[in-house]
Design a protein around this nucleic acid. Structure first.
Lengths: 359, 359
DNA sequence: ATTAAAACTGTGTGCGAACACAGTAATTGT
DNA sequence: ACAATTACTGTGTTCGCACACAGTTTTAAT
């Protein structure tokens, strides 16, 4: 069963290939009769365009603006960027060309300036992490005015014209952390939530995680569990961390679990020494090297992996899918929450390379 | 910076495009001088062939034989098949055409007959699950004699000419199960390993899992943990299962953990009622519907997901990558061991669709 | 030295789709 | 009725590469 071509449709519909082409691309200048005949044949034969020939003939570059925080200033952003690069490698044959614009997420000025440059270059699509809400909104509106499609990652700003948001489900990751800690709780127990951050912009994520964490215990162990919470802004000050922990109403040895709401759990471990009991369950986020080391030393029980690499990967793939094919995208794409322990971490570290599958 | 083409290389090397083509494909009939000049220019300019134009011009079908157990006879095989179909959808533009051959894994006869048909059709590559060792080996040797590349999934038969094995790391999955149960063990405890299978061919996987499970406790809790083991062949006989469990040296309420070494943990739950204690940790395999239901009812604590869909997906992608490009493949590709609990299962159920990314 | 064979090289066509352009038919205006 | 638009349609070239074939040069054979 051979694949059907435009030429075949033309013959079957009794018109020329040019007319079929005009119908397919809605280029007009086709009589209603011819149009219906062609559409009928296409439908009946189940025509699927040959993407290879199509992009080859198009012979145009699809320029995608990658507009993210500078990974040199915040190493977290290396991971989404890795995903972007992986995606680009796969689709470079389709004429997709990336243009990188990195901004300093602490400077509205810088964001505006770089955003200006993005708009100026008039790309075919934008991958954006709109960390700064107000300026982000302005930028998005300008893109929409210029009919440039956008996909947001990490932070959601919903607006008509935004194709998709790809991010983490913060609330649910808190629920998950609570569940993991609960395996270590028989009846009663004391657990600690630790927020270690100095920036305001991520605060919403952390709050959501904490909410999720609390909601699990509200539903499941209600009154036998005591939840303590510490906000530590000065997380580079080891003495301060210890002091805070010792100021809890109970001695740290009696804690059954600790939940650090972002990737900084290693900061805690660097100064924890032996202040916790041997059977404590500790849960943190992200497969960054210091965390991996403590996981392997059994100081961290679980790491929840948000797969931030995927954010970049899926973002680029989504844009390409939208531009190259016409397929619709799901607006919301939450990333899987992988549970990582010492015994399965290798698979997740390897996956980065494996994903580099096609073409 | 424009992409370099064969034509450009030809001009730079002072030869015709035809000669460049002959060099690229080692088609011979090129003088040593010309060959070196062309290779030099290619190297210097970093030539990358345009895969689109290349496959378009080749205009040949790559026929892949999918030679797996009949999913109608064993529903497990639906999952790898799903992965196969997903992969095919993605690469169908590259002229990859699947040919399906399903065999009855209980009949050597059938395997041989279908294998004959595979060889006869002389495909460009074979995806094989060589469940039956002896006949599998024979088939593989015949493929190799005919220079048909093979990728094995699920069961490993190593032979020169086999491109890759993609499968589960059984031993490590046992280790992981032990670790998950250990979160519930403070000091001492009783744990149970349950093998529920009637076929011999999978026995090796189950043994490996059990070995891994035991090895963890040997290294970590040594003498305080008692491991019991039951082999249940007649797993459809609920009374028999209960009887076996009650015949353990300790009452089932005192078990801290149960590890069922394959996807049949739901068979246990169907008849377990309230015979176990409320804080028991139960670990099984695979995201099949009955297991998912018991996970959501908190009867199963953890499911280890071997991502069998990926086996098929990666298998097809690997073959294509080998045939279409010339890239080398890693021989061993172990699949990630995902830890699934009620709180994160949705992401894994959704992932099947998400993966359907490009092209 | 003259063929014959082998070794090498260049040109041309096609893969399927996109689009420009030329060409024909239908409609309008005067 | 005739030219001038407008509406429609078909042909031809291009994208980068693969491969067939024709054409040229070199080597071997008699």
């Amino acid at each position: 069963m051979e694949r059907i071509r435009i030429k075949d449709i033309a013959k079957l519909a009794g018109v020329s290939p040019g007319t079929v082409d005009r119908v397919i691309h809605n280029r007009g200048n086709v009589s209603e009769g011819a149009k219906q005949k062609v559409l009928g044949v296409m439908e009946k034969m189940g025509y699927e365009p040959n993407l290879l020939a199509s992009t080859l003939a198009l012979n145009r570059a699809i320029r995608l603006a990658i507009f993210l925080p500078d990974p040199a200033l915040d190493i977290y952003w290396r991971q989404p960027l890795q995903g972007v690069e992986k995606a680009i490698r796969q689709i470079t044959h389709y004429g997709v060309v990336p243009e990188f614009y990195f901004f300093d997420s602490n400077s509205e000025q810088d964001f505006l300036r770089k955003g200006q440059a993005v708009i100026q270059s008039n790309p075919n699509g934008v991958l954006l992490a709109p960390l700064i809400f107000k300026q982000g909104k302005v930028f998005i509106d300008r893109c929409i005015a210029n009919k440039i499609p956008i996909i947001n990652i990490n932070t959601e700003i919903n607006a008509k014209g935004v194709l998709a948001y790809i991010g983490q489900d913060s609330f649910q990751s808190g629920v998950l952390a609570a569940r993991l800690i609960s395996f270590n709780l028989i009846g009663t127990g004391h657990v600690l939530v630790l927020n270690m951050d100095n920036k305001l912009q991520d605060a919403k994520h952390l709050q959501e995680k904490e909410k999720g964490f609390r909601s699990y215990f509200n539903l499941n162990h209600s009154d036998q569990i005591h939840i303590y919470k510490l906000d530590i802004e000065d997380f580079n000050n080891q003495g301060y961390i210890i002091e805070k922990i010792n100021s809890l109403p109970i001695p740290p040895k009696e804690l059954s679990g600790i939940f650090v709401t972002n990737s900084r759990i290693y900061k805690l471990m660097e100064c924890a020494g032996e202040i916790f009991g041997p059977t404590i369950t500790t849960v943190g986020f992200d497969l960054i090297q210091p965390n991996i080391d403590y996981l392997n030393k059994d100081k961290i029980s679980f790491l929840i992996n948000q797969n931030s690499v995927q954010q970049g990967y899926l973002g680029i793939m989504g844009l390409t899918r939208h531009l190259l094919q016409k397929r619709k995208l799901e607006y919301l794409q939450n990333l899987p929450l992988d549970i990582v322990v010492k015994e399965n971490i290798n698979y997740y570290l390897k996956r980065a390379h494996e994903l580099e599958i096609l073409i």
